[in-house]
């Protein structure tokens, strides 16, 4: 059980990014956060593993409040929460394998890791993770030699290395080709279903939301304006969609077959 209670984030310049956000997520859920850019999706996800320090509220995970964890505890919590980014956030000049191994940093001996030494077990784990996302043959290439879709798969493999219990995915397909979106979300869904990893994912396209989400929250100007279950989303009309996205927004097709997605 994961619970966010009355979370608020006010930036130094006075911008209120999220305001009184509360929701719960059951283990194994695929929660999708929708909303316009600037609605606070990224801030919300980053507050959960405290890449951004929340101003008020609490985040409860297995009875521990993440917001008050000391640095040591926080690192132990972070290593159980994988994160996938819109721009992949790989170290471009390092090899794919090193990028994947860096997902293991929370577990290994800090001094050995500084010297770039990882246990053999971890190296095998990394190769297995790459195999799982289908790019084991690219392990020794530099990360920036890979295509966008392949880079995001490296990002997923890095998250897998953490052997996470939860994954935060911040617009994982927004900078990819719509066709690639399915392949990437497919891997995340597989982790969700096969390993029982809880997923918190922000998405743009309603079609993708309807296809993958088991639960949806909608954000607008930092507030939750919509909460719905799997069935609610499937029935979601353009009118409701516009309510979340504002009047000017149109339903955007992700460019894939409608039948295949339902």
């Amino acid at each position: 059980m994961f619970e966010v209670r009355e979370l608020t984030k006010v930036y130094d310049d006075g911008t209120v990014a999220i305001r009184d956000v509360s929701f719960t997520v059951d283990p194994g859920e695929f929660l999708v956060i929708i909303g316009l850019s600037g609605s606070g999706k990224s801030t919300l996800l980053r507050c959960i593993n405290r890449l951004i320090e929340p101003t008020e509220g609490s985040i409860l995970w297995e009875g521990v409040d993440i917001t008050t964890a000391d640095p040591g505890q926080l690192r132990k919590i972070r290593r159980q929460i994988g994160m996938i980014f819109q721009h992949f956030n790989l170290v471009k000049r390092s090899s794919v394998l090193t990028n994947v191994l860096s997902g293991r940093l929370g577990y290994v001996n800090p001094i050995a890791s500084i010297l770039n030494r990882f246990p053999m077990r971890d190296r095998n784990l990394a190769l297995k993770a790459l195999q799982r996302v289908g790019i084991a043959d690219q392990a020794y290439k530099r990360a920036d030699e890979l295509s966008g879709g392949q880079q995001q798969r490296v990002g997923i493999a890095r998250a897998l290395m953490q052997q996470p219990r939860m994954i935060l995915a911040d617009e994982p397909v927004a900078s990819l080709d719509p066709v690639l979106a399915h392949s990437i979300l497919g891997y995340i869904e597989k982790m969700n279903q096969e390993d029982g990893i809880t997923v918190l994912c922000s998405l743009h396209y309603l079609d993708l939301v309807q296809r993958y989400a088991t639960k949806v929250i909608g954000l607008r100007e930092g507030r939750i304006v919509y909460k719905g279950s799997r069935e609610d989303i499937r029935r979601m009309t353009d009118r409701e969609f516009k309510e979340i996205y504002g009047q000017e927004a149109e339903r955007v097709s992700a460019g894939f077959d409608e039948k295949g997605s339902s």
Partner: peptide, 17 residues
């Protein structure tokens, strides 16, 4: 690029790592 730094932090790495 601040992205990779954020990503490494998110794995539970220490400051030196």
């Amino acid at each position: 690029d601040p992205g990779p730094i954020e990503a490494i932090q998110a794995t539970g790495a220490t400051r030196i790592q």
